[in-house]
Every structure is written in C-alpha cells, then in structure tokens.
Design a protein around this nucleic acid. Structure first.
Lengths: 141, 141
DNA sequence: TTGATTGCAAACAATTTGCAATACT
DNA sequence: AGTATTGCAAATTGTTTGCAATCAA
C-alpha cells in the first residue's frame, strides 16, 4: 500500500506522541514543543509534514480552527468506523457519539431532508457540562 | 442595541452584497472582488472589518476553512432562531433543519452525553441528493 | 466638533516550499 | 548507491493592526 516510506525516529516520535495523547487535541506547534520538551530533537517543518501525511493516511483527524488566528488541531484517530463527535467550544473536550439515536437521526435526515450525513466529517459544536455551568454562573453573552 | 454606528456606503454595499448572495458562500476576497467589479470602490481591509462586525452581530455566518490554505467563507444568515444546518461538502448547498427530530436529538445529547448542543454554531456535513448520486456513479474514494 | 470609519502599508501567524545536508534501506 | 527525509531560512497567504485622512452625526 505504501512504497518508498522510510522509517525515521522523527516520524515514530510524532505518531507516538499523538497516540499517547489520543484524548486531547494538539496543534502542530504544541506537538512540536512537546517533542522538544521530551528531548526529541526535531524541526517544526518535519512536524508539519508528518502531520499532513498522517492526516492523509487517516491516522490523525484534523479540526479546523473555529476563529481565524487559531491554529488547526490534530488528534489521533483510533476509531476506524466513522461516528459523530461533539466538541466543547470552550475547552475543546470531545465526546464520541456512537449510539442508536445518532443512527436514527442520520436516517431521518436522509429520509426527510435529502441529505446523506457524513459522520466522519461532521463535528457537532456545544458545551460540555463543566463549561455550561461556568457559562451560567458568568451569565455573560 | 448599537451605539455609535455610522452608516457608510461601504457598509451598506457589503451587507447588500451578502444579502443578495444569500444562497452562496463568499470568501472575504471574493466579496471584495465582486464589489470592485460592481464599481464599488472599497478597501479590502474595510471588507474584512465589516465582515467581522456582521458576524458578531449574527448577520453573517462564518464557515471555517476545511483545509488550511483555504479562506474562511461567509454567508448571509437570514434566520434569527438558531437551528441546525447541514451543508453539502461537494456543492455547498445548505439546508435548514427545524423539526422535532432535531430537538429530540439535542435533548438526547444533553441527557446521555452531557453536552449542550449549540445549534447556531454547528454545521452538519454531508452530501445533498444530487451530489450523492454523482458520487455513486463516479464510484471513487 | 467629536467620534467612527476608511484604506494604505506594514505587521502577523500559521503553514508551505526550495534546497543542500543527512539518514534510511 | 539511490531515494526519502530532514530542517533551516525564505516565501506564501489569509487576516489584522497602526495611523493619518476622511466621513457621519
């Protein structure tokens, strides 16, 4: 499936980092800094290139920045089957939604709205419990 | 609600452009070019600033670029009440989803997954009927 | 008059690319 | 040896900002 792919310590380190940080989203910059902090000598360019390659290969998932002036975030994508995800707009926490309700909802959308939902590419936006509470207290906006 | 807002020909022209292009998504650059093409003398900076303001006011909706090296897109947002939208990844067609199923789905997410769905900010990704058919025929990817 | 808006040029930040040196197989 | 990868510096690109001139109220 892949030809001419050399295995380098940088590539390994980058995948390993995302793999063990699977619960979190990292920007390229953050990944870079983390690697440096761990004593891994690597260039930022290499991190960018590795991330691009990993996204193409489906190993990482890419989250587009909400507002400009933010960087894209990347996350290890352990799940092959696509299902919906919801992400907290505040803190970035993410939840996987594989349940019957989601499937039923997808069916409804196809039947009544004529759209085929792409669960793999859709990212629901919301607030996690903690952030929702904080928002209430603050009572702003 | 708004204080100290002057009404200028530039601002008017920019809103008007998006309003009459409500069916489409425009990048800041495209909006800028369109205005120039129509003989409207305006600076790109002004377009950016107006768009930012309009997004804050809820008049325009912002779509984050999928891949980097793309620009953000903006669209006139005629609907005040927030409800879910689904957008065709292929052709950009958008559908408004206000129905009981959506509400039920939101309730489910809150009850079972601990997230408060932000319908205003969420954009479901999918394929419209036409594009789904084309995809089938092509049979690619 | 007073404060907001404009728009040019310059600044910025995230990301990409040219290219020579280096590492993998 | 031959090809892929690295990483620095420089280029790109979308977007923002400083600031003096202009405009709306």
């Amino acid at each position: 499936m892949q030809r001419g792919n050399y295995q380098t310590r940088q590539q390994e380190a980058i995948v390993a980092l995302f793999e063990r940080s699977a619960h979190a989203c990292l920007t390229a910059e953050e990944a870079y800094r983390q690697l440096l902090a761990e004593g891994m000598d690597v260039g930022k360019t290499t991190v960018y290139r590795a991330i691009t390659k990993l996204c193409d290969a489906g190993v990482l998932r890419r989250y587009a920045p909400q507002s400009s002036s933010e960087a894209a975030q990347y996350q290890y994508n352990p799940c092959r089957e696509s299902h919906l995800h919801i992400r907290c707009a505040q803190c970035g926490a993410m939840e996987h939604l594989h349940c019957d309700e989601v499937e039923a909802f997808a069916v409804h959308i196809r039947a009544h709205h004529g759209f085929v939902l792409d669960e793999g590419r859709t990212m629901l936006c919301g607030l996690c419990q903690d952030c929702a509470k904080k928002q209430e207290k603050a009572g702003v906006e």
